[in-house]
Write a protein that binds this DNA or RNA. Structure first.
Length: 518
RNA sequence: GCCCCCAUCGUCUAGGGGACUAGGACGCCACCCUUUCAAGGUGGAAACCGGGGUUCGAAUCCCCGUGGGGGCACCA
């Protein structure tokens, strides 16, 4: 039983995708579960796609989620360097060995014309232009003299893996059990590019061996390239890691793997419901987007872990520690899981509601600052947290609920009038509230409530209809947090001034009387 | 097109031959609570892809269909 060492090996070509983060979570869980080591390796063998910022973004994402690597480009370790572009000598040496043993051969063919992503993206229809990867193995059996001659001429070449032509290859996957491929379907993949850089197949095998990786936990999309890895490992005398192909994270509609483009329309659709003062549900697939939107890291961890794994039959909210306690590789599912923005939102709201007010206050602080508000005292911040806690699903929604604290309000006459009271009644209520609150002392939610409730009694109206106009007068809109606590958070003078202004507005609006009947 | 993988409510899932009148969660619907909005409470609708087997007995095992996903680059 070799010690558990697992790795997350993303290529730094863009901002961290939550699908990748999910795979990282599984790796981390297994490392922690087994007392093993969680490693981050940078797969940057494609120089053309390298993006420096992606490195930092990935690091930040792991830190944010609380699954920091034990070894990696920023944390070091005894198996470095952890960046593939700094390990080229190792791949070259491996390639030489494969060449020498006949397990690989030089190929002088030019790059495919129809190349890569060059395929016309608009031709999306059927039976496409692209071929089906059939390299004809033209160089597989070149005479030694020919190879020597080409090399002497300085002809560029790649190195291809010599795959078996018959028989089959099998692999014991930790989740899927035995996997099998038949030789007639193989290709001879390039393992060394003409620029001297290895392709994924070679690099991953060499590095996993050098870093003594025990379990290669990777997404299902890699399953198909496993036979290449089997052959490379065998030829190099490597004891292969246990392969663990985890299910992919799919788009909400199940069509394809989770992607930005596809998700857009769901995000937009989800935000159509604008009953909340703050819109949300923008298309998101990047970790930093979720962070910016105000999803809690503990929620992301919890939600991500649930995609393709389940904690138990009837519990699905858990801490990392609890997840570690129950995690087993065999329990990871075989089929893909769709990304469900609604469930994520629910979970985020649920966790927020469970937060202590002071904790929530600190988490909201930066979002308020972004909206232009920096509470002068922590009591106000805590007050805000208390008001929004049961109303927000993401932290970024918080400012929208309490903007009236630092912005001028401009209620409309229409909004100020409560149908049951009419213009006169509404105006009278507002005026009475202003009078009643002007000299109130102390200025607390409790004292405000006492005043306003008795006001309703003395005016002979129900509390509900009376509070409506007052809320609109002070917060500017019909939807706001509970009245008394809201008023208490504002300066007493500001509240009274807003009530007076609203009263004046209604007093000027005789014409509105006609609205009453309706 | 070829290869590989997968298949329980709309979604995430529990289930690994009898404990299943198939459980939980999100979402949805209704009602309650209520000063708006929420939150909360109660109740409800909602699934074993189809067809063959194996077995006394199948959501659970096998086969075939069908459906879905992934792969087939000098990208990873």
């Amino acid at each position: 039983m070799r010690p558990v060492r697992v790795r997350m090996a993303p290529s730094p070509t863009g901002f961290t995708h939550v699908g990748n983060l999910r795979t990282a979570v599984f790796n981390w869980l297994w490392a922690r579960k087994s007392g093993g080591v969680f490693i981050w390796r940078v797969e940057d063998t494609d120089r053309s796609r390298f993006i420096e910022a992606a490195l930092h973004d990935f690091r930040d994402s792991l830190v944010w989620l609380g699954i920091e690597p034990d070894e990696g480009p920023f944390s070091g370790g005894d198996f470095g360097p952890y960046v593939q572009s700094e390990r080229l000598d190792k791949y070259r040496e491996a390639a030489e060995r494969l060449l020498a043993s006949g397990d690989a051969y030089r190929c002088f063919c030019p790059p495919r014309e129809d190349g890569a992503g060059a395929a016309d993206p608009t031709s999306g229809g059927e039976g496409g232009s692209t071929g089906h990867g059939g390299y004809d193995r033209r160089c597989r059996d070149l005479a030694p003299e020919v190879v020597t001659e080409r090399l002497a001429q300085g002809a560029p070449f790649t190195i291809r893996l010599r795959m078996p032509l018959e028989g089959s290859l099998t692999l014991q996957d930790a989740i899927h059990g035995q996997l099998e491929w038949h030789a007639e379907n193989f290709n001879d993949p390039i393992i060394m590019k003409s620029d001297g850089f290895p392709t994924y197949h070679l690099a991953v095998c060499v590095d996993d061996a050098a870093m003594e990786i025990s379990h290669a936990i990777r997404a299902d999309e890699w399953m198909g390239s496993s036979p290449y890895h089997i052959v490379i490992n065998r030829a190099l005398g490597i004891e292969p890691p246990t392969y663990v192909h985890v299910p992919m994270v799919l788009n909400p509609d199940g069509r394809g793997k989770l992607s930005k483009r596809k998700t857009v329309k769901y995000g937009v659709a989800a935000s159509d419901d604008s009953s909340s003062p703050v819109g949300h549900g923008v298309a998101m697939v990047q970790a930093r987007e979720f962070r910016a939107a105000g999803y809690l890291p503990e929620v992301m961890f919890n939600y991500l872990a649930l995609l393709g794994w389940s904690y138990s039959g009837d519990e699905e909210l858990f801490t990392p520690e609890q997840a570690i306690a129950r995690f087993q590789l065999e329990d990871i599912h075989k089929s893909g899981a769709r990304w469900d923005p609604e469930k994520l939102d629910w979970m985020n709201g649920h966790y927020i509601r469970a937060l202590a007010v002071d904790d929530l206050a600190e988490r909201i602080r930066p979002f308020l600052a972004d909206a232009g508000f920096t509470p002068e005292d922590d009591a106000v911040l805590a007050g805000i947290a208390g008001l929004v806690r049961e109303r927000i699903t993401t932290l970024s929604e918080a400012p929208g609920w309490v903007e009236w604290l630092w912005r001028e309000v401009e209620p409309t006459a229409t909004d100020l009038v409560q149908p049951k009271l009419g213009v006169q009644g509404s105006a009278a209520g507002i005026a009475a509230a202003a009078d009643g609150l002007a000299a109130l002392e102390p200025w607390t939610a409790e004292s405000i409530e006492t005043v306003l409730r008795s006001l309703a009694d003395s005016l002979g109206v129900k509390a509900g209809p009376l509070f409506g106009p007052i809320r609109v007068a002070v917060t500017g809109g019909g939807v706001a947090p509970p009245l008394f606590d809201s008023l208490a958070l504002l300066d007493q003078a500001v509240v009274v001034a807003r009530l007076r202004a609203a009263h004046a507005l209604l007093a000027d609006t005789e014409g509105l009387e006609t609205v009453d009947g309706a």
